[in-house]
Nucleic acid binder design. Structure first.
Length: 601
DNA sequence: TTAGGGTTAG
């Protein structure tokens, strides 16, 4: 309907044109104006024109007005909402616009609320309704609502829409329903790059990195979709988590063949992959060849060097970064302080602590406090470390107290060790190794009564260690071993190799250290258990399947026990192999019977 | 006649 005031604007008319034709041209002009809007001010002007000419009554004009206000980055959902409320009978398009607008604005509850309103008013949904709606469910982790919406999708017959399917894969994957995610993926007729990307992300977000790499290979076999650079970044991250060097190298090769120039993110991911797979030299080489670096590239390399025990180089690189004019942040400072701590550089570490706060204006987080406790404690300054914890303006957490406890264990300070353990108990720590450390300290001090009390406490609390595992890659496939594992098809050979290794170790003077075995079993049983720790099984498997002299790389989820450490040192000497073991944030390079951590870890 | 999904580093 056209307002009468518009009909009186005759000065726009050329003699030969009818008022209707001119109005249509004017409407087109307003729509063009809308399309060209780059900011909210220009939008207000376009809105004013539309109102002036009375075009708001045209549903097409109103919906364009709504979409232009709701969807671009400069848009405003409050403004869009006021327009929406003025539309007399909003239809599917208008509702879809509001659902998407709120989802884009991270106002996920409102997005779902608009859908409910849509259902209440009996407005029909279409295939455009669901992708944004499912995205809102994903963000809210609203799996129940998501499943109800999935039901509606099936009822309305939109389950074969590619965009809807991809959104379902993503929602189920991110909400931890990996089986449902796979079910949608497998039922799809046609898959595009986004489908593959979503299913791989579903696996990586569930920690199923191996499966994600398998999917990448499957995708390559189909040759229907060419992976984008971003997907390589995700896959390299999976390799980093797994310590899968062969696969990472394979990806590097594919990247070089398919892209003339790699972007900085890909280069940084490659550097990170090499670091996490134990190839620090290769990572350094890549890093040096990267001409234009940013704080991420430096951060990866600095933390990498610190993780590999090359603290001085890490600190040199930090200076280089500052000289380049790059501003350090809190994450980089964690690596810098870690480097100082690992190398016993107490003065330097404390200087960096001050520079971080006063020169770079970074407020210390709990991680930084933890680094300082580790730094001071590792150097044997246990009173100072305790004093530092007591003066912290934030509540010390279990990691802080555990750092102090480890230092007490290394420097045999029972008094402060007891304080640290009590604090851990007060924090309700469920980590059995805390009490175990204290029991060792009591045993060393010959305090048998206290030792008995701690042992009883350990037994009463029924504390369970997180199951440990070791990963090892052979021919681009990652194998996972858990303690006492007999599930591998080559289990017999693996245990035969273990037997051989034990026999050789006897000549090296190795004797089993059962002190960290928590189970209430006799000494012989403990020794049997020790033999099949996951790291030993992984080494055995690697010795069977890799050529002489080739380094063995293992990635673990937990800190290794003392016995595995001693055992691996000797094996590296006996078999002439470098064995590189990655724990969560540290590498051990075992070579010729010694370890890079100098036995403090 | 308008529009929808995934993936990018420490």
């Amino acid at each position: 309907m056209i307002g009468t005031s518009v009909l009186h604007q005759t000065h726009f008319l050329l003699p030969s044109e009818s008022p209707q034709v001119n109005l249509r041209l004017k409407e087109q002009e307003c729509l063009t104006l809308l399309r060209r809007c780059m900011n909210i001010e220009e939008f207000r002007q376009a809105h004013a024109q539309i109102l002036r000419w009375g075009f708001f009554c045209s549903s097409f004009c109103a919906s364009n007005l709504l979409a232009t206000c709701a969807l671009p980055d400069w848009g405003s959902m409050d403004y869009a909402s006021s327009i929406f409320q003025q539309i007399e009978e909003p239809g599917t398009f208008e509702f879809n616009t509001m659902i998407k607008g709120y989802a884009k604005d991270f106002n996920m509850e409102k997005s779902l609320f608009v859908y409910c309103e849509m259902l209440e008013k009996g407005v029909q949904s279409d295939n455009f309704t669901f992708p944004s709606l499912l995205k809102a469910c994903t963000w809210l982790n609203a799996i129940k609502e998501g499943m109800q919406i999935h039901g509606n999708i099936i009822k309305l017959g939109f389950e074969s829409d590619l965009y809807v399917q991809n959104s379902l894969i993503n929602m189920y994957g991110k909400c931890g329903e990996i089986k449902l995610s796979c079910a949608v993926f497998e039922q799809m007729g046609q898959k595009d790059a986004a489908s593959w990307s979503a299913i791989m992300a579903a696996h990586t977000s569930s920690g199923m990195w191996s499966e994600s790499l398998q999917l990448f290979e499957e995708m390559g076999h189909g040759r229907s979709c060419r992976p984008e650079e971003s997907l390589y970044v995700s896959m390299l991250s999976a390799c980093s988590h797994l310590g899968a060097l062969d696969f990472g190298r394979f990806l590097h090769g594919v990247l070089l063949r398919n892209f003339s120039e790699l972007n900085l993110t890909v280069k940084t991911s490659l550097t990170d992959m090499y670091i996490n797979c134990g190839c620090v030299e290769k990572a350094l080489c890549l890093f040096r060849r990267t001409t234009k670096k940013n704080k991420f590239s430096y951060s990866v390399m600095i933390s990498g060097l610190a993780m590999h025990g090359r603290s001085k180089e890490a600190l040199e690189l930090f200076s280089e970064m500052l000289l380049e004019g790059l501003q350090p942040d809190d994450v980089i400072y964690v690596s810098v302080l870690t480097a100082c701590s690992r190398d016993g550089l107490v003065d330097e570490g404390l200087q960096f602590w001050n520079r971080m706060k006063f020169e770079h204006g970074i407020e210390p987080t709990i991680q930084h406090y933890c680094c300082i406790v580790d730094l001071v404690g590792r150097a044997g300054m246990l009173d100072e470390a305790l004093e530092f914890i007591r003066s912290m303006p934030i509540q010390p957490n279990d990691v802080v107290w555990r750092s102090l406890l480890s230092a007490c264990k290394a420097h045999h300070n029972l008094k402060i060790g007891e304080i640290a353990t009590k604090s851990l108990v007060r924090l309700n720590s469920r980590n059995p190794s805390d009490l175990l450390i204290l029991s060792h300290m009591y045993a060393r001090a010959k305090k048998w009564e206290d030792l008995a009390k701690v042992r009883t406490e350990l037994a009463c609390k029924h504390l369970h260690q997180t199951p440990g595992y070791s990963l090892v890659e052979v021919k681009r496939k990652v194998y996972r071993f858990v303690s006492q594992d007999k599930s591998h098809p080559e289990s017999e050979d693996i245990y035969e190799m273990i037997h051989q290794m034990e026999w050789q170790l006897k000549f090296e003077g190795y004797s089993a250290d059962t002190s960290e075995i928590l189970l209430d079993v006799d000494e012989e049983e403990k020794k049997q258990r020790l033999k099949s720790h996951s790291q030993k099984l992984a080494i055995s498997f690697a010795l069977i399947h890799t050529a002489e002299g080739v380094p063995i790389r293992i990635a673990r989820n937990l800190r290794m026990c003392n016995d595995c450490h001693t055992y691996t040192k000797s094996i590296s000497k006996i078999y002439g192999r470098e064995i590189i073991v990655r724990e969560r944030n540290r590498f051990h390079h075992f070579k010729d019977g010694a370890c890079s951590c100098r036995d403090y870890w």
